[in-house]
């Protein structure tokens, strides 16, 4: 019983870490209709930001978030201006391969600048945990979980409560109608992209006490995040959060029962099954999956 609880707790914690990455991805996906393959690289840059601030100035990663987020936000604006903006309305191959190219570019820029060394942050709370009965909950994982879920919910509130958030949603639903309503679609795209990648950067910084950083660290996370985005339903922020927790659970349960390697197969198969049987995702609105390409 305790074992089962522990497996569930660990799975949920890992899922929480995926949530913030997936939320940004689903937002870009839903609003810009862009599959952002470079999303993991922004997380990787966030991790490096946190690592270097810790290594050079002894700044705690939870504080460096406040420097990392604006920096990655700025990088997001720049990226949108140089690349993403030009892919809007372009053939799908342009959209996919522009972000893939960006991913290759950023990954290897990190390799060139930071080398392939694996770097880790060690803090006072590294390796610490809270005990709830027999169940142990890692403190850094718990903090990441709380921050990630909190930010994801804040984003959701921002989208549904604020004027600009509503403009974003309107643009997601119908670009042309939104433009007719006087919404500056270009600006919405730019802000959405920058906010979403800043989220990935934030996740990188808060995950730094848990995971080591190296140039390719983003790839595995982003692939998992894609699975989550589709499970959760295109553009659905809450769906992404729930799906992230679900994927964390699947990983942990299948990992325990069958083996770590098969956990990955399990969620990829789940992913293909959902795509085929319910392409709007587990929590998405029907019709949202109809891709309005070029």
């Amino acid at each position: 019983m305790d074992l089962a609880l522990q497996i569930i707790a660990s799975g949920l914690l890992t899922g929480g870490i995926y949530a913030l990455l997936a939320v940004g991805l689903t937002l870009i996906f839903g609003v810009l209709r862009v599959v952002n393959f470079a999303h993991g690289e922004f997380m990787m840059l966030g991790m490096y930001g946190a690592f270097w601030m810790w290594a050079l100035w002894d700044i705690d990663p939870y504080l460096s978030v406040f420097a990392v987020v604006p920096a990655i936000f700025g990088l997001g604006l720049l990226t949108d201006r140089l690349i993403i903006k030009r892919t809007i309305g372009a053939p799908e191959v342009t959209v996919v391969f522009a972000t893939l190219g960006l991913s290759i570019l950023l990954q290897n820029a990190a390799l060139t600048v930071f080398s392939a060394d694996t770097r880790s942050v060690t803090t006072g709370y590294t390796g610490t945990a809270l005990s709830f009965g027999e169940v142990r909950v890692s403190i850094p994982m718990l903090i990441s979980f709380v921050v990630a879920i909190g930010l994801a919910l804040a984003l959701w509130a921002f989208l549904s409560r604020t004027r600009f958030g509503k403009a974003i949603q309107a643009t997601a639903q119908n670009r042309d109608a939104a433009a007719l309503m006087g919404i500056n679609v270009q600006r919405v795209y730019m802000m959405t992209y920058a906010i979403a990648v800043a989220g990935a950067g934030a996740m990188g910084a808060i995950a730094a006490p848990v995971f080591s950083v190296y140039p390719r660290v983003g790839l595995s996370f982003v692939i998992t995040a894609f699975v989550i985005v589709v499970l959760g339903g295109l553009g659905s922020v809450l769906g992404a959060v729930i799906a992230a927790l679900l994927v964390g659970l699947v990983q942990s349960v299948v990992g325990f029962l069958v083996g770590a390697a098969w956990a990955e197969i399990a969620y990829f198969v789940l992913f293909i099954a959902v795509l085929v049987l319910r392409p709007q995702g587990l929590f998405g609105r029907r019709g949202a999956e109809v891709y309005q390409g070029a």
């Binding site: 996906f29 209709r33 589709v230 990829f268 999956e289 891709y291 390409g293």
Partner: peptide, 19 residues
């Protein structure tokens, strides 16, 4: 995957490759 369009098709093939 024949019903899938755009990025959904891309992601399905990607997942198949990983499997």
């Amino acid at each position: 995957t024949l019903r899938l369009r755009g990025p959904f098709f891309v992601l399905a093939t990607l997942a198949f490759g990983f499997v």
